[in-house]
Amino acid sequence: MFKIIYCVICSFIILYAQNNSYHSPENIRLFADYLFCQNDYLRAIEEYKRLENSTASDTLIFKIGYSYLQIKQHNYANKYFDMIERSSSLKSLAVNYNSLNFFLIKDFSSLKNNYRLNSDSDLNDSKKLLLVSSILNENIFPSDEQIFLFDDSDRLFVNDLIIKKKYPDYKSPTVAGILSVIPGAGKVYTKNYTDGLTSFLLTGLFTFLAYDNFRNSHHFRGYIFSFAATGFYLGNIYGSIISAYRYNRNYDEKIITETYDYLKQKNYFIKKVNFCE
């Protein structure tokens, strides 16, 4: 008798357990949301995609796009952000994140198009990104009115960026070349102080050795040292010119790095979405 009761209870437990569908859309969504909130975007995308055909919604599509953006699959992110319908409340947010998508892959013409084609949405955030990218890439500076789109702290940063781009601290390769007539002076001009000093010492040393050998009638050695002195001297002139080009390129790269760092810290002026509260 006890055995029969035991078997019945076991059967009921098994039946009950089997009835609970772990793969129901609701459970998949809950699991996907959990993965999304744990920043496990790749697996979250897989789970969301299982729901795409049955219970697709704008929120779900946005989350897939956002996840793709986080794992730097920019083409897919663009595809999903574009899928959100115009009537959706998430549309302007999707357009803003799509702008960010284009900004990150440095596709500035698409960034402009994205802004132009969706001008009916609330795109202040996109406009800020567009203004910054115009300053960075095209040296097109915003009007005073446009600068007031930014918050106070951001405005300071943008003004600073405009000044750096308008009046860049470049070094002229021509000036560097002319200055390096005095060995090392061109490099000192491009702030390579130790290279300048080394150049001066090497050219001076080999010139002295050449002079000294010629004076003591060691002509062969004199010619060798003359060749070296000439090489170091001309190398110093050419090196100074290249050094000025390098200085300018590093200056530009530094501005770009600083701007991207600042924007990253500010979430690229785009409102943060919080689906996890």
């Binding site: 150049s199 190398g235 050419y238 290249i242």
Partner: peptide
């Protein structure tokens, strides 16, 4: 020229 610059 670049070689001499590198030596520097």
């Amino acid at each position: 020229l670049l070689f001499f610059d590198r030596l520097t």
